[in-house]
Amino acid sequence: MIRFWNRRFRTGILTENPEFDKEMQTIRKEMKDLVKKRFAGSLAIRMVDSGSCNACEAECNALSNPYYDLERLGIYFVASPRHADVMLLSGVMTFNMTPHVLDAYKQMPEPKWVISLGACPVMEAPFEQTFAIKGPATAHLPIAYHIPGCPPEPIEIIRGLLAFLKGI
């Protein structure tokens, strides 16, 4: 254990790593202010996967690693749609999943927004229309903002969330 703490103190805070440029700092500051103003300090996101390849989920999980640490900006992922302000939708809308996605959306309290994540929900991924895919998410849900990428990198997701916050 002593070796662990030794390493812990030697490593310091990774999020200050020089490879993260100034822009990240500004984003952080701006975002903190916006989250504070519009959502009383915290923005709750419910991530819903309606048929992705799991890369978008892996990138959202990466948002909580020490390099990005999204939660310190007051943005966090919640376990229930009833606790959420925003639904983050990834993956193509599959025939089997669509009723459940709509259910989850219904369960969210007003005011609520949907952000689509990655190329799949807007049908820009290589996946083609088949009988098992129910077209772009815009046909089923009011999409407030789209974060492009296949998958979007964690830094792009943070930037996207910031742009969304600026827009509402």
């Binding site: 996967d49 599959t94 025939f95 089997n96 290589p126």
Partner: peptide, 24 residues
């Protein structure tokens, strides 16, 4: 729940055209 019918989607494609779907 995530059934996208990939087997059907790839029918009629060349191996090269199928690759972007296979890798995803």
């Amino acid at each position: 729940y995530k059934y996208r019918a990939i087997e059907k989607m790839l029918e009629g494609k060349t191996l090269q055209a199928a690759k972007p779907i296979i890798e995803r």
